[in-house]
Design a protein around this nucleic acid. Structure first.
Lengths: 341, 341
DNA sequence: ATGAAAGCGCTAACAC
DNA sequence: GTGTTAGCGCTTTCAT
């Protein structure tokens, strides 16, 4: 690999000139020929500056680590895509790493974070101990933001307006005539699920309905967990005619579960999923859902870690702009007169 | 951030000692007290070596870039997971980057690759021009492997045993009594789809059936593309009673398409998807599919780029071990007597 | 058993 | 217009 010094030698100039040409230094005054000679040498050798040397010198790598638990979920891809876009505007790059690898102490990624190899860390929270470990490690070194779930006492946590989403979803079912609406959450440790549950609760209260304790069950963030949660809910709350599911991944399991129980959707049960993904359109039936501003979440996270302000432990809720948007498909319907009374 | 020199000063030793202790240099002979003093200073300051300096010195970063086009697809997560595992064994870390960002020339990720910031590149091919650009750029600098699709004349391409998968899938349908089996591919540029199509063809020929040209359509690697491809296929080949779909993502679109056409699966059409993902179990009906060794693909790719041997342009097919494994769910069934003649 | 010194490749401040 | 120099933090060879 050619180095700066190589180019300098080839072009018969000093390394400083090369560096300043490569970096487009506007204050540099060189003769056109000199510049041409340097450019020619660069082209000939396919030179590009050594990034490690640059990082060492600048004490900045230009890398933002986005650490996720589960690359599988299509939910994250939107967050990631938003993060990419914002990072590009800041002249930085997002690299995605796996939480499990990081948590294993020996991981190289960990060394990268603590060794100044990344300028910031965005961590997709999962409500596990791993989060805590990672956050503690990362926070000490670089600006760190947790997404959607985490402890705002100790970290900067960025979340969506989950309460609004839960409320809007529930209201939609209420407007369709459902007064007994269940809620299937993700897990007590998940901040976002709690917010959505609060929204569900307030919507029911506002409508004059009393949310019963039995109308709530906690699943997980996976297909089987959703299926199991729904089975539980159907058993302990047979009276509900609609359900708001806090995770679209779980909702797919719910669909299968209801099919197994011999209940038709939306005939016997209206199903409303929070988060919208392209797949929702292709399920049977296609799922009514609410579109959350995930891209914006990813963008905002990058903006936060790139801002010069100190990141204090806090809970930041993303403005609901664009407003959470309901996508009505076929998994929700009006409650027939027969059942209404 | 504490540096090596800081620790040395604190412990009253030279930087060399610190370095050798940090790196567990077995040949180092120091008194127990000295070592203890150093360790204490390290603990107190939470010191960890600057990764950029280390990379600069060693001319190795320990990073393998895995560049994907579409993080959404659950297919890749298995590949990624396999890559992580293998990388760990080599003492390296995998970081996932987005192809689009790389292709934009200005991308920082590109600078990282050309600037020696990554030791190797694994690129998930998509059969697009972007592949070519990226491969050309990366190949010149670091060991590079393309996954599943690419030009073996110019790159090292690693693929699955697609022909076997296509054959086995088709044979399964044939054994169920289907003699007229269609094939829905991804796209002519995709190597893996071609392989699967060859397998389909050979299975039909072996069974004494003649694969008609009309039995083949090309969709894409997305839900809508799969739906459209199926619609096309149903129109031009109404006689087929089963179809092998080269992409499970497309197969989800196929399911929706058949529903729209009023055809029941598997009653009117048996559907076999290549690639198995957890979601397949939760679709309606659950999809019969074939499990490909994706983890192994990711692992093998890492092994290739980490091996010292020069990577020559070539096409490497992953041994079908573990054998592609059929997962029979509900989207395939025997061809009823009525239709059989 | 420990230290001194050089150099990885780059850039910024200052000199000519 | 262009060159010199120093130093980012680390490792490694050679001295002592």
């Amino acid at each position: 690999m050619a180095t700066n010094a190589d180019i300098a030698r080839m072009a018969g100039v000093s390394p400083a000139i090369v560096s300043r040409i490569v970096n487009n230094d506007q204050t540099l005054r060189v003769s056109a020929e000199t510049r041409a000679r340097v450019l020619k040498a660069i082209a000939e050798t396919d030179y590009s500056p050594n990034i490690a040397a640059r990082t060492l010198k600048a004490a900045k790598s230009g890398i933002i680590a986005l650490v996720v638990h589960d690359l599988t979920s299509s939910v994250y891809s939107e967050i990631i895509s938003g993060a990419y876009e914002a990072a590009h505007a800041f002249g930085k790059t997002v690299l995605v790493g796996e939480a499990a690898a990081l948590a294993r102490g020996q991981s190289h990624l960990g060394a990268w974070i603590s060794g100044g190899g990344v300028d910031a860390v965005i961590l997709q929270g999962a409500g596990t101990d791993t989060d805590v470990t990672l956050t503690r490690a990362a926070r000490a070194k670089v600006p760190t933001v947790l997404l959607q779930t985490g402890n705002p006492e100790s970290s900067t946590v960025l979340k969506l307006d989950d309460a609004t989403a839960g409320r809007v979803a529930t209201q939609h079912l209420i407007e369709l005539g459902h007064s007994r609406v269940g809620f299937l959450g993700v897990d007590d440790a998940r901040l976002f699920s709690q917010g959505r549950q609060q929204g569900w609760e307030s919507a029911l209260l506002d409508a004059g309905s009393t949310p019963a304790k039995e109308w709530v069950a906690q699943g997980g963030n996976s297909f089987p967990a959703g299926a199991q949660g729904m089975a539980e809910l159907a058993k302990k709350a047979p009276e509900i005619s609609g359900v708001v599911v806090a995770s679209i991944v779980a909702a797919i399991g719910v669909l299968a579960s209801l099919r197994d129980l011999g209940k038709s959707v939306p005939g016997d049960m209206s199903l409303f999923a929070i988060q919208d993904i392209p797949l929702a359109d292709y399920l049977s039936p296609p799922l009514t859902s609410i579109k959350m501003p995930l891209r914006e979440l990813g963008m905002k996270a990058v903006e936060l870690v790139c801002s010069d302000e100190q990141l204090a432990p806090s809970l930041i809720t993303l403005d609901a702009a664009p407003e959470p948007q309901i996508v009505i498909r076929s998994s929700t319907t009006t409650l027939g007169r027969r059942e209404r009374q």
